[in-house]
Amino acid sequence: MKFFHVDVFSSKTMSGNGLTVVFPEQPLDDEILLKITQEFRQFETIFIFERNESEAFPVRIFTVDEELTFAGHPILGASAVIHNLFFSSENIARILFDISGRTVNIKSKKSEGIYNVTMNQGSPKFIQKIEKNAYSEIAATLNIREYDIDENFPVEVISTGLPYLLVPVKDRLSDTKINDKNFENFLSNFGAKFVYVFNPETLECRTWDNNGTTEDIATGSAAGPLCAYLVKNKLKKIDEIINIHQGKFVNRPSIIQGWVSQALGKQEVFISGKVTFFASGNINI
């Protein structure tokens, strides 16, 4: 099996969010896909299969713990690899992915060996606004105090593929971490899969696996809901470019660009980032 290691949300290698992209030559059991992901030890690995009758590439995405129904930076990174392999003579490529029965549209632009990839994450789902009587417990699970949550902005659950609990934090972003051993169950009470904490002024953000052991560097699936949140709460405008910062606390500072467009009364969220190639090779199993 051929694999590629790319860095996403950065214009230079060995920065941004690393990703492994694998092309299985035959169907593999879920257990093998998970073990391959664990062997690479990236936050996520994406597996790409042969194009279907709709010209879409079926993909599966794994963390070291589980399969995800959607993720941002793996889709962007995989798009650059596909552009390089299948559309190498073209400066612009339009790519379709099929993930969990959902079709995702990608536009990839190539310039001097760097790929600028944009994903349409579709219409956001505003799942719920959290009542303030839950703030104390939310803060405790994140190692902060209730008054560290910025009361000028709501805590909300929003999804563009994965539902995130979006928590605005004023001054103690550096202190945030997951304190609850049953954090995934805690989040499920709000209809969320993961948490995304952010400073509303700087748009510096953080998220982790639900065990709290690994911090993600740059999270496209969380950036989309945050863009929708910022527009909904009038911090940003329709079609305004939003620069989201993440990875500072793990020494891999990254920038995710996003915006929200509107047509015919329908909003769509777009996420964009640069991708660079670091390595490639073969998996010998």
Rank of each mutant, 00 (worst) to 15 (best):
C227V: 08
F194V: 09
G224F: 02
V197D: 14
V197N: 14
A218L: 07
C205S: 14
G212V: 01
T219M: 03
P200Q: 14
T219F: 01
T202W: 09
A192I: 15
V231M: 06
T219N: 02
G224R: 04
P225H: 06
K236E: 09
G224A: 10
N210M: 07
F194M: 14
S221I: 01
T202H: 11
W208K: 06
A222K: 02
A223F: 02
T214Q: 08
T214M: 09
T213W: 09
K232P: 00
T202Q: 10
Y229Q: 05
K193H: 14
V195K: 01
N233F: 02
A222C: 05
V195M: 14
C205W: 09
T207Q: 09
G224S: 07
A192L: 14
V197R: 14
T213S: 12
C227G: 05
T207A: 11
K232G: 03
K236Q: 09
Y196P: 02
W208N: 02
N210Y: 05
N211I: 11
A222H: 04
P200K: 14
F194Y: 15
W208S: 00
F194E: 15
A192K: 13
G212F: 04
K232Y: 08
P225V: 00
K236I: 00
L203G: 10
T219S: 07
N211H: 12
W208H: 07
A218Q: 06
T202P: 11
L235N: 06
T214S: 08
F198M: 12
T219E: 02
L235F: 06
A228K: 01
N233W: 01
Y229I: 01
L203F: 14
F198Y: 15
V195Y: 05
R206S: 11
V197T: 15
F198V: 12
K193G: 13
A223C: 07
I217T: 10
G224K: 04
W208T: 02
W208Y: 13
N233V: 04
G212R: 00
W208C: 00
D216G: 08
Y196L: 15
F198G: 12
F198W: 13
N199M: 12
N233T: 06
A218E: 04
V197F: 13
P200L: 13
A218G: 04
T213P: 00
G220I: 04
E204Y: 09
L235H: 07
L203V: 09
C205K: 10
C227S: 08
C227A: 09
T213K: 10
L235I: 10
A218N: 04
K193Y: 14
P200S: 13
L203D: 07
T207F: 06
A223Y: 03
A228T: 00
I217R: 02
A222F: 04
L230Y: 03
V195W: 05
E201T: 15
A228D: 01
E215T: 00
N199G: 13
D216Y: 10
G224Y: 00
N233H: 11
L203M: 12
T213C: 08
E201Y: 13
L235M: 11
S221M: 04
G220A: 02
S221E: 02
G212I: 05
V197G: 15
A222M: 03
T214E: 08
K193C: 12
V195I: 15
P200C: 13
G220D: 05
C205N: 13
K236G: 10
K232H: 10
T202M: 12
K193Q: 13
Y196F: 15
D216I: 00
K236D: 07
